[in-house]
């Protein structure tokens, strides 16, 4: 059992150890979907949503694996659970809110292979979080992912009018920006104590 307070877990996942900028999870969507602010918001929302659902599911499945003493199946089980969650969420959203599906739709299938989601499940297991701690951790991680994506999209938007040498244009420049952003997030290190 982990004794961290819920507030600390949230702030820690949101700012101090931001999933994208400190743990390097979910770099692909971070580089790929951060070109426009509106898509960045939607991608962030979709990821946060799936994180929340799959975090709860992963907690449940791990308890089950513990009960039958088969923790070596953890990885395989998580992968299947996350893929199933994404499918379920997609079907559910499609049925209940077509407008939300329109907004999130394209991004949902992409999330299956997003390492931030699997990373979240693995971290919450290795840190022994209980159910509520896992949920808060998922919320913080999702918020942190969205934050990083939106800030990045804003920065890239500003760069569109700047004059950039040909060689640097594209991913290399995005990575440099991400480096600066990551450095500035290190400033939050003192927050949690």
């Amino acid at each position: 059992m982990n004794s961290d307070s819920l507030g600390y877990i949230f702030i820690n996942a949101l700012l101090i150890n931001n999933f994208v900028l400190a743990y390097f999870l979910g770099i692909c969507p971070f580089l790929g979907v951060s070109a426009k602010l509106s898509t960045a918001w939607r991608m962030g929302a979709a990821v946060s949503f799936v994180m929340l659902v799959s975090s709860a599911a992963a907690y449940g499945i791990y308890q089950l694996l513990l009960a039958i003493d088969a923790t070596y199946l953890k990885l395989v089980a998580y992968v299947v659970v996350i893929a199933a969650c994404v499918q379920l969420v997609e079907m559910f959203v499609k049925k209940t809110s077509p407008a939300l599906f329109q907004a999130l739709g394209i991004f949902l299938p992409l999330i299956t292979t997003n390492c931030a989601i699997l990373g979240l499940a693995l971290f919450q297991t290795s840190r022994d979080y209980n159910f509520w701690q896992s949920l808060v951790f998922a919320l913080g991680a999702g918020g942190g992912f969205t934050l990083a994506l939106v800030i990045m999209a804003g920065l890239r938007h500003e760069l569109r009018l700047a004059q950039i040498p040909n060689l640097v244009e594209g991913t290399a420049l995005t990575l440099m920006l991400a480096g600066i952003l990551s450095m500035s997030f290190m400033g939050f290190a003192g927050l949690g104590g």
Binding site: L21, L167, A172, L173, L175, M176, A178, I180, M183, M186
Partner: peptide, 22 residues
């Protein structure tokens, strides 16, 4: 020290991509 911190990872990869592109 910056290079072994998370931010440095992004810088190093950006640099390598530039070299490869060159």
């Amino acid at each position: 020290v910056i290079l072994i911190l998370p931010g440095g990872g992004f810088f190093a990869l950006g640099l390598l991509l530039l070299i490869y592109n060159r």
